[in-house]
Each structure stands twice: as structure tokens, then as C-alpha cells.
Simulated scan of single mutants.
Amino acid sequence: MVEAMTDTTADARLAAEIAAAAGELLLTLRVAEQGTVGGRELGRRGDHAANVFILDRLATDRPGDAVLSEESVDDPDRVGADRVWIVDPLDGSKEYGMPGRVDWAVHIALWESGRGLTAGAVAQPAVGAVYATHDVPVADHDDTRRLRIVISGSRPPAFLAAVAREVDADLVPMGSAGAKAMAVVRGDADAYVHAGGQWEWDSAAPVAVAQAAGLFCARIDGSPLEYNRPHPYLPDLVICRPDRADILMDAIAAHAPVSTDAPAVAMVRAYLRAVLTHDASHVRLAVDAWSVENGQRTGESGAEIRDRLERRDRGRSPRRIRDLTFREHPGAVVARYLLDVVAGGEPSTVSVTEHFTVPGAEIRSIVAIVEPHRKNS
């Protein structure tokens, strides 16, 4: 038992050391690129640089361990590994690319077979903080103020307004899952609730640290948070002070939807959201992904498809997706919907059927048929 504790502490210290160093790298890059690039491009550069650094360190210090990273191709062999590091090199890349924002983080967690999350660290470089499982203090919450629930600033769950009214809480938007979870760890907030879709790397390190701080952590339906699964989609979570868990979970059960998207459907939904928002940061595309529209090749790589999603076409501007339905097949999803667009200054509607090949944790191909909607004729 002593040896296991010693090993776990060493892993936690390593996670904290690497997360802190990656954070310093990100701060340096942010300053160096100031005035040159910003926004999504700065976030991409930060993601890439931090990922390379973290993978190099893990390969050196824990050469026999597997890694699941947001910025790397998923290796299915990790599912059978005894030890897997789950990494988000830059959580909150959107906020990182915005001057003055501090709500972004570096996540590094260790999952072990039969034990679950055993070590982890969350660095918040912009505020000079690193939280790790081996020395995180027990959270101290203020009972004299109203409950504070931190939520996604861009994708807040619709049901939380009703939950907040029921438990008499304020909803506080914030970027980065790590920043939100650490707000609860510090006692600045009482709970963090998310149901808009996430991946294992979004929550693994925050959950590891929150559990070490004595906080309640679960899915929104109360089931355990499980990691290193074949598909790393983990759409929702609750992190909260344990003495408020029952009342909060009861309110969520009364107002939250009873089901969530299957992983492949959630990936397609993220793609369709990017069609409207021109923000493809949450879209998982294989490096060699390709796309076709009405028999014409429109993308030869994941990077090209992502660039097309984020490019604003003045000739045809998508405005709204309506009547969306999904049909899931083994390794594939078919989406059918109506797309309201403005083309040449005139509004119109097209009917879209898209076939997505999703064999694992990435979209491999997209074949679309786009036709004028019958009501336009």
C-alpha cells in the first residue's frame, strides 16, 4: 500500500510539473505572437506547441504508458493499456486567443486499469495556479451567499435556468472546463454543471483534482464518470460541494433531458453547429478526412474541411438549420435537415442529406446531397 501511494504521488507531481511547464510555454507563446496572430489561430498554435511538449515529456518520463490527447490521433490500443495519460494541452483555446482572458487551462490526468483516475493536475497559467491531486486542499465554501453554479459561456444547458430557480442559485458563465472546476475547488463557486457535450480530456484532470479535494463528481444522471473508454465522448458532468449534491442532483433530475446523443451523433452535431457559427474548434476530423457535395470533391483533408467551415462565404451564408433528424448506423450517421441560407442577398432554403463516416473518435468522410427545397419552387 505504501508503495502504491508513493507511485501515485510521484505521478501527481509529474503531472503538476508538466502542466506548469506547458503553461509557461503557452504564456510565452501568447506574448511572442501578440500583434501577429490572435483568436482561433493563436489557440491552434498554442494547442500544438503544448501538445508536442507534453507528449515529449511523457515519452521521456513514462515511456511505457499510453496517451489519449485532444490534439493527437486516437490509438485504439490504449483501451487495453494499464496506464493511460489523458491530456488536454490547452483547454479553452478560444479564451486563450482573446486578450486579457485568464479562463484557460492545461489538463493532465492519469487513468489506471481497475483504479480509474489516480493522479492529475490542472494548471491555470494566466493566474499563476497549479492544482494537483497530491496536495490539493479541501474546498472551503461560503455559506453566507447564494449558491453559484459555473456554466459554459458558449453552450450553457437550457435546463439550468430552471435548476437555478429551484435551488436559488446564480449562474456564472466562464470559459474552460478546468477553470470552472477549479472555481469550485477554490470555493469561488459551489457547483459546475455541463451538458452540452464534452470529451474525456475536457474533464479527466479537473475531476481527478476535484475528487481529491473531496467534491462530488458524477454524470448529470448520477452515474459514475468513466474514462479510457473505446470512444472518448463524455457529454456531461456535475462537480459540486458534497453537502449540496442531493438538492442539486434532484433539481437536475427534474429538469434535465432524459437522454443524450450517442457519441457519433454528437460529433456530427458539432460539425453542423460549426456550419452556422464558423467555429470548428469542437469538430473532430481525421487528418485524411475528405468531403464531397453533389458529386464534387470539397475537401481533401481534415484541415481543409475545417478551414472551409470557418471561412465566411459571402455568396452563400447559412442562417438556420431546421427539421434536423439523425439516423445512426454502425460506423456512420446520416443527417437530414433544411438549411436556411442567404444567397446573393436573397433568402432561400435548401434540403440537405449528409452521410458521415465515423468509425471511431473522428469523422472520416462527409458526402452531402444539397437540393432546392420544394417550397422554394
Rank of each mutant, 00 (worst) to 15 (best):
L237D: 02
V265K: 02
D236C: 09
D261T: 01
P257V: 02
P257N: 01
R269A: 15
A264G: 05
A245L: 14
R241Y: 06
A262G: 13
A256G: 05
D261M: 09
A254S: 15
L237E: 13
A264N: 12
T260G: 13
A251D: 08
D236P: 08
Y271A: 05
C240G: 06
P242Y: 08
D243C: 10
S259I: 02
P263T: 08
L248F: 08
P263A: 14
A266S: 12
I239W: 05
L248D: 04
T260Y: 00
I247Q: 12
A262V: 05
P242D: 14
D246G: 09
C240D: 00
R241T: 15
A256D: 04
V268S: 07
A256W: 02
D236M: 09
T260D: 03
I247L: 11
A245Q: 09
V258E: 01
P257I: 03
I239E: 02
D261I: 00
I247F: 01
V238I: 15
L237W: 07
R244V: 15
A266E: 00
A254V: 15
R244K: 07
V238K: 04
C240L: 06
V258C: 01
S259T: 13
I247R: 13
A270L: 07
Y271D: 05
A264S: 14
T260F: 02
A245F: 11
C240H: 02
A262K: 03
D250S: 14
D246Q: 13
A270G: 02
V258T: 12
Y271W: 07
L237Y: 04
M249Y: 10
R269C: 01
I239S: 03
S259V: 11
C240M: 09
V268H: 05
A262E: 07
V258Y: 00
R269Y: 01
P257Q: 00
A256L: 11
A256S: 07
R244C: 14
V265L: 07
A266L: 05
P263Q: 11
V268N: 02
S259N: 01
T260W: 00
L237H: 09
D246W: 03
A264Q: 11
R269N: 10
A251I: 14
V265A: 06
L237T: 05
L248G: 10
Y271N: 03
R244A: 15
M267A: 13
A253N: 06
D236T: 06
L248T: 08
V258R: 09
A253F: 11
I239G: 04
T260M: 05
I247V: 13
V238A: 02
A266I: 06
A266Y: 00
V238C: 01
L248C: 11
P263F: 08
I247E: 14
Y271T: 00
V238D: 01
Y271M: 08
A256Q: 04
A270C: 06
D261V: 03
L237V: 07
C240S: 14
L237A: 14
D246N: 06
A253V: 12
P242R: 10
D246I: 11
P242M: 07
L248E: 01
D243Y: 06
I252R: 03
P263Y: 09
I252A: 08
D261Q: 05
V238Q: 02
D243L: 08
C240R: 03
A251V: 12
